[in-house]
Nucleic acid binder design. Sequence first.
DNA 1: AAATTTATTCAAACTAAGTTGCATTAATAA
DNA 2: TTATTAATGCAACTTAGTTTGAATAAATTT
Lengths: 126, 126
Amino acid sequence: MGIIRKTASIDLLLNEFEQESNAISAVDLIKRLDKQINKTTIYRVLDKLEDDGVLHSFLGFNGVKWYAKCKGCTKSVHKDFHPHFQCLSCGTVDCLHIHVEIPEIPNREVLFSQLLIQGKCETCAV
Amino acid sequence: MGIIRKTASIDLLLNEFEQESNAISAVDLIKRLDKQINKTTIYRVLDKLEDDGVLHSFLGFNGVKWYAKCKGCTKSVHKDFHPHFQCLSCGTVDCLHIHVEIPEIPNREVLFSQLLIQGKCETCAV
DNA sequence: AAATTTATTCAAACTAAGTTGCATTAATAA
DNA sequence: TTATTAATGCAACTTAGTTTGAATAAATTT
């Protein structure tokens, strides 16, 4: 079930992603919108936005959930297998628009994959 | 700080990994050894075994921590960048001994990476 | 435009994974 | 064999996320 009604919560959350080109963690969104939206609502709206192909989610190295805007994803077509990058210095997480080849694996059926790369970002690298 | 003393807890934990060729989640180990070792101790011993290059850890798709035996890792040399595979049907998680090329990324310094592949394992694939 | 249905929201309580502080136990060294 | 210090156990805590059930707001029907 996707989003049916336009509400203030959805606007507020989408606005955060307009302002920001990087990924944003659920935890961070809860902090940012603390005064404005209940955390239950935040998790639910994020869920729905992901359902609708507006956002996609992935896990960072410590297991917290991150969300980022989808490019070219729709409700039905949601194949967004790009890697994500987490900077060790500043903590920024973002999508890498590069292609990584996942090799065929004998006797196994590959359905999804998640590649998380950790290092230093443009700003923090020497 | 690695392991300094040989204790019963360490033996019990190592024994689990002897018996099993697949990865084992921390949660599962706590269940298995419930009567024998306290969960705090389990987390602590796992930490140290990882430190010593005996085990390596990674996160599953739902963010829980998995451990598997290291091959050719030592305390100082701990470069184990192989992908991990999680079966959607039976839940088994294991190490894939294949090489995946992580491309250079302009202006970024790549330090670590984690590739998690989800699908159907040998036993569960048609 | 009021009534009704349906979706959305909130607060609070809960869960699951993992961590911390501290007293106690047990390897190892002296 | 005692002294030292690492390892352990326990309880309480933290953090991220989920569930619940009642209250509210938005659509839709009348």
